[in-house]
């Protein structure tokens, strides 16, 4: 698992500082003669209460920050926890290799599956290589290639969404960013194998959806999924990028919101304090949920899988009139 410097969000700080104090006391306890155990247990209780207070009622903007937390588990962390035998497959066979999307075959509970996801970096160097998880057309074309491979070998596809969005750059436009995304949407809608897409961090617009057309769409509790970033929405509609918190509220972009609007099938609870506080436990919960849905989808024939996915997305939209 990649490690970087630990990072603390403003609203996490009181909890982190309290925990640091507890740790210091514990060290003193073991090295010295004074017994701090009652003091420690008091502080631990306080920390637990504080944790509940902070995380039970995050604002949407705070959830956005959680979804982007630099210590949050990324796709390859879940590969590490949930899969064995991972064989990474690279390249779009047309132009290049885009490391902002990673994919390949692996085993889940011993059975081969195709896994792929957006991959952010843990530090500046990694982020340069991964382009902050913002794919270029090559990334989407690689993803499509791998999904078609999975279909050919009749393996289920698990995708993990975590991107600020598709990269807006000159080369990306020259090589058909829009076309690459569009083709993925069409191809995913007709693949004859089970597809489960999970938003594990940021679900940034078309760049997220391009690997997100699943029979099941799941989200981790502190992930977000929206048509445009809150900052983008704020700068265009509110004429002020600083109003991103307001835009986040207006767009209703959290897992809870999307579950209420019946866009997603399930929101997966995160460990206390968020996925980054206990990645192993997070992966365990995610694995359990994936297992359940894979089991359900295994009952469907290829035709039924296509029909199921079609019906799911065909029904999305709110309007009046027949």
């Amino acid at each position: 698992m990649a490690t970087g410097t630990s990072y603390v969000l403003e609203f996490e700080r009181p909890l982190i500082e309290l925990e640091k104090k507890i740790d210091e006391l514990k060290v003193l306890s073991t090295s010295g003669t004074v017994d701090f155990s009652s003091e420690i247990s008091k502080l631990e209780k306080k920390a637990k209460k504080l944790q509940t207070e902070i995380f039970s009622d995050l604002t949407r903007w705070q959830v956005v920050q959680m979804s982007r937390h630099p210590n949050r588990p990324y796709f390859l962390d879940y590969v590490h926890y949930l899969f064995t035998d991972f064989v990474e497959l690279c390249g779009d066979r047309a132009f290049g290799e885009d490391p902002s999307i990673v994919g390949g075959f692996a085993r889940f509970d011993g059975k081969p599956v195709m896994v792929m996801g957006h991959q952010k970096g843990r530090n500046t160097k990694e982020n340069m290589a991964r382009n902050f998880g913002m794919p270029r057309p090559e990334g989407y074309r690689k993803a499509r290639r791998l999904m078609e491979l999975a279909e050919r070998f009749e393996k289920p596809i698990l995708t993990f969404v975590d991107t600020p969005g598709a990269y807006p750059g000159i080369g990306a436009e020259e090589r058909g960013q829009a076309e690459a995304i569009a083709v993925n949407l069409e191809v995913m809608s007709r693949l004859r194998v089970p597809i489960i897409s999970t938003v594990v961090g940021e679900g940034g617009s078309g760049g997220a959806l391009a690997i997100g057309v699943g029979n099941r769409v799941l989200m981790l509790q502190n992930s977000v999924y929206s048509v445009i970033s809150p900052e983008g929405c704020a700068s265009i509609l509110f004429r002020d990028a600083a109003k991103a918190d307001k835009a986040a509220d207006a767009m209703r972009l959290t897992a809870k919101d999307l579950l209420e609007m019946k866009i997603i099938d399930e929101a997966i609870a995160e460990p206390a304090g968020g996925a980054h506080r206990d990645p192993a436990k997070m992966a365990e919960a995610l694995g359990k949920t994936l297992r359940k849905h894979l089991g359900q989808l295994a009952e469907l024939s290829p035709d039924e899988l296509v029909q199921d996915r079609y019906a799911k997305f065909r029904a999305l939209g709110v309007f009046s009139g027949r």
């Binding site: 949407l185 959806l209 929206s226 209703r252 609007m261 939209g317 709110v318």
Partner: peptide
């Protein structure tokens, strides 16, 4: 944007 995630899903 005013229709949020519903508008994104129209792409799919």
């Amino acid at each position: 944007m005013q229709e949020g995630i519903f508008s994104l899903m129209q792409m799919a």
